[in-house]
Simulated scan of single mutants.
Amino acid sequence: MSIYEYTVKDAKGQDVSLADYEGKVLLVVNTATGCGFTPQYEGLEKLYKKHQGAGFEILDFPCNQFGHQAPGSNEEIQEFCQLNYQTTFKTFGKIEVNGDGAISLYNFLKKEKGGLVGSAIKWNFTKFLVDREGNVVKRFAPTTTPEQLETELIAVL
């Protein structure tokens, strides 16, 4: 399997094939608007603006599984991010990353890069770096800021 074989829902509920991102370097992130890590949106946007021209995309997946920190509709979440952090990268529909309701994309990501303590996503702002061929290169913990992963991003770009 490749990441390009998955289809996800955008914030309006429309199907988006990840094959649309073939040839790009991706950072896939499960996010929340009411989390202690929410200010990372600022760093994510800076990273996106700095490297978008080199073929970099951020795929933002709001997730309400951790402390119900992503309340609201997809539209409200997108509006919050755009108003408070001026985000311009793609925000998808709200998802689950663990358990029976986990979307297949996240089951794939977890299988590819399970991390040291198992495959479950531990909290929001877990990040997966994907190269231009669709390979999951690295998994970053929520505590890893966008600024801290930039060197590894550049190496893949």
Score class of each variant (00 low, 15 high):
Y4L: 14
E5Q: 15
T7P: 08
V8T: 06
D10V: 12
A11R: 14
A11Y: 12
G13K: 09
G13Q: 10
D15S: 14
D15V: 14
D15T: 12
V16F: 13
V16C: 15
S17K: 13
S17R: 11
L18Q: 05
L18S: 09
L18N: 05
A19M: 14
D20W: 13
G23I: 12
K24R: 11
K24C: 13
K24P: 05
V25K: 00
L26Y: 02
V28W: 04
T31A: 15
T31G: 07
T31M: 12
A32R: 05
A32I: 07
T33Y: 10
C35T: 03
C35Q: 04
C35N: 04
C35A: 08
F37M: 12
T38V: 12
T38I: 12
T38W: 06
P39D: 05
P39H: 03
Q40D: 09
Y41E: 07
Y41A: 14
G43F: 09
G43V: 11
G43E: 09
G43S: 08
L44M: 09
L47V: 08
K49L: 15
K49A: 14
K50D: 06
K50L: 13
G53F: 13
A54H: 03
G55H: 03
F56T: 01
F56D: 01
F56S: 04
E57S: 06
E57L: 15
E57G: 06
I58W: 08
L59S: 05
L59N: 00
L59V: 06
P62M: 14
C63M: 07
C63S: 04
F66L: 07
G67E: 02
Q69S: 01
A70K: 04
A70M: 11
G72E: 01
E75Q: 01
E76Y: 00
I77E: 01
C81E: 00
Q82F: 03
L83R: 00
Q86A: 12
T87F: 03
T87G: 00
T87D: 05
T91P: 00
T91M: 14
G93Y: 00
G93P: 01
K94R: 00
I95Y: 01
I95V: 07
V97K: 01
V97C: 05
V97E: 02
N98P: 04
D100S: 12
A102G: 02
I103G: 00
I103R: 03
I103H: 00
S104I: 08
S104C: 11
L105F: 02
Y106P: 04
N107S: 10
F108R: 02
L109Q: 01
K110T: 06
K111N: 11
K111C: 14
K113C: 15
K113F: 13
G114K: 03
G114L: 13
G115H: 05
L116K: 12
V117T: 13
V117Y: 15
G118Q: 04
G118S: 01
G118V: 05
S119W: 08
I121Q: 06
I121E: 06
N124Q: 11
K127V: 11
F128N: 03
F128A: 12
D131R: 07
E133D: 12
G134D: 07
N135V: 13
N135E: 14
V136P: 04
V137A: 08
V137T: 05
V137W: 06
V137R: 06
K138Y: 09
R139N: 08
F140A: 11
A141C: 11
T143K: 06
T143N: 09
T143E: 15
T143W: 08
T145H: 06
T145S: 11
P146N: 04
E147R: 05
E147A: 11
Q148F: 15
L149C: 05
L149Q: 03
T151D: 11
